[in-house]
């Protein structure tokens, strides 16, 4: 995953040195994670959340719902319909947790970046490095979740492998957007608003029921949600219903990555290099 970050950083910056410095920021988080303590517990407990939702809603509520119809007319158990959406949501939640709360705490309270900026590392490289860690964490969660999906026979191993990069992209998009938001935050209270938006997006992005069953106004509004595009993309992969139309979802997520990074890098330079 560090390799992906470095590769992206290299493309954008055209400078290998910069990529290596961004990787050093990612590495710092790995060291902190490995050192253990409560942060280790926090990261590891993140595995539990999407699995609990999968069991409760997928099995519990799924037993009440029965079967769902896919766009291609196939009828599948509710669990099969829901699992890919929860995978996308897990990627989103993991990325947002790391890129908003933890990022903000490091920037404002721990003053961690003040010391980093005394080294050759620049704000843009910090942004990439932090994102790299958020991705790494997201990759652990989504990887584990995909294994569970295969074990539950919700998807095939090959499709799970194909869904993995798509889930990473969802995490990447939300990590970048989350970091951009974090640089705009004034205090902890603002995170309550992030929480509201995140939860609403989680519930209303075609996650639990097909978007087609929403009221028309909602169907239009949902197009804004990056999670909707992630859910559609991943669900099409794990259920084997991919078509050319899904390129639109892919493009939207990529655009979210670029936008988030651009805003975050610009705001960080302003905040930290006053």
């Amino acid at each position: 995953m560090i390799m992906v970050t470095t590769a992206v950083a290299r493309v954008l910056a055209g400078d290998e040195l910069r990529a290596r410095r961004a990787a050093a920021v990612t590495e710092r988080n790995l060291v902190a994670f490995r050192t253990g303590g409560t942060y280790w517990w926090l990261v590891v407990s993140g595995f539990a959340e999407p699995l609990l939702y999968l069991l409760a809603i997928g099995w519990g509520v799924g037993a009440l719902v029965g079967d769902m119809e896919l766009p291609d007319g196939r009828v599948v158990p509710y669990l099969t319909f829901l699992a890919p959406a929860l995978l996308a949501a897990a990627a989103m939640n993991g990325a947002i947790a790391e890129s908003t709360m933890n990022f903000f705490a490091k920037m404002k309270f721990a003053k961690l970046y003040d010391s980093v900026l005394n080294t050759p590392v620049t704000p843009v490289e910090i942004a990439f490095g932090e994102l790299g860690w958020a991705m790494l964490r997201g990759a652990m969660y989504t990887g584990a979740f995909l294994v569970v999906m295969v074990v539950l026979d919700v998807t095939s191993p090959v499709r799970a492998l194909a869904a993995f990069p798509a889930a990473l992209l969802v995490g990447f998009a939300f990590g970048a957007l989350g970091m951009a938001f974090a640089t705009l935050m004034r205090s902890w209270q603002d995170f309550d608003y992030v929480g509201i938006v995140q939860f609403a997006v989680f519930l209303f992005s075609g996650t639990f029921v097909p978007v087609a069953s929403y009221p028309v106004a909602m169907q239009v509004l949902v197009q804004v949600s990056p999670l909707y595009h992630g859910v559609e993309l991943i669900r099409s992969i794990t259920t084997g219903t991919v078509g050319w139309g899904h390129l639109w979802h892919l493009a939207y997520l990529l655009a979210a990555v670029v936008l988030g990074l651009a805003v975050a890098a610009r705001r960080m330079a302003r905040l930290l290099l006053g």
């Binding site: 509520v61 009440l64 719902v65 519930l203 639990f208 069953s213 929403y214």
Partner: peptide, 17 residues
């Protein structure tokens, strides 16, 4: 709203409750 209204439509169709 999300579970009760949206998912509810499908649960009620299933008739499990």
């Amino acid at each position: 709203l999300g579970m009760g209204l949206a998912v509810g439509e499908y649960v009620d169709r299933g008739g499990g409750l």
